[in-house]
Amino acid sequence: MKQRVPVSQIMAKVLIAVPSTKKISEVNQLFADYNIRHIPVVESEKLIGIISVNDILKIGYSNADMDKDALNDIYDAYKLEDIMTKNPLVVTEDTIIKEVAELFSKQRFHSLPITDKAGKLVGIVTTTDLINYLIAQY
C-alpha cells in the first residue's frame, strides 16, 4: 500500500454546499438529486457546519409514512442551524489518508470537510471514498 498519500487524492472536489438559510426540505432534495449523504454548510465560503441525511431523518423518522408535502412542512419547522453539526472537525488537503482513516475509526461521523491552508473549504472525504481507495490498492 502506498504511504503518505494526501487526502486530496481521494476527496470530492466538486462540492454541493449550502448556506445556513437553506430550507431543510431543499437540503433533503439535494441529497436525493445528487445521491449524497453529507453537505457542508457555509457562510461567505467559511465552513460553519455540516448536515447529513441522518440529521434530517432524525426529525422526520416517526412521521415517515406522511406524504412528502406534510413531511416537508415538518422539516421546515426547523432551521438548518438547529440540526446541523456546528464547527465540524476538518482536515487540510495535505492530511494523509491514514490519519483520516484513524479519525473515522475513532469518531461517530462518516465525512470530513477538507480545507486549504487558508481555511477555505476545498473538498469533502467520506468513508466511502476511503473504502474505494483501499479496494483500489488490492
Score class of each variant (00 low, 15 high):
I74K: 08
N28E: 04
P19D: 15
K98G: 00
H110S: 15
I24H: 02
E102K: 07
A32Q: 11
D69W: 09
A136F: 01
Y61Q: 10
G49N: 09
D94Q: 14
D65H: 14
V27E: 03
I131W: 01
L57M: 14
I16Q: 10
I96F: 07
L71T: 07
I135R: 05
N132W: 03
A77N: 15
V100C: 06
D55I: 06
I39L: 06
A17P: 06
M66D: 13
A32W: 08
S8C: 09
K58D: 15
E102G: 00
E102S: 05
P113K: 06
Q9S: 13
K13R: 13
D94S: 12
V91C: 03
P19G: 12
M1F: 07
V91E: 02
K120E: 10
L89F: 12
D33C: 01
A70I: 06
S111Q: 06
S8R: 15
K22V: 06
Y75W: 08
P40V: 07
S44C: 10
V7D: 01
T127K: 12
V125A: 04
K98M: 06
D116C: 12
K46T: 13
I114V: 15
K22W: 07
D73G: 08
E93Q: 15
L80F: 08
N72L: 10
V27I: 14
A70G: 10
T126C: 05
D55F: 04
V100W: 00
I83L: 02
M84L: 08
D33F: 02
Y138T: 13
A101F: 04
I114R: 04
L47T: 04
I83A: 01
S105V: 02
N132F: 05
E81W: 00
D76S: 04
G119V: 15
Y34V: 01
Q137L: 15
D73W: 01
N72T: 05
T21V: 12
A64P: 04
N54W: 10
A12G: 11
N54Y: 11
K13N: 10
I48W: 04
I10N: 01
E102N: 09
Q107H: 07
I96C: 01
H110Q: 14
Y133P: 07
D82I: 13
Y75A: 07
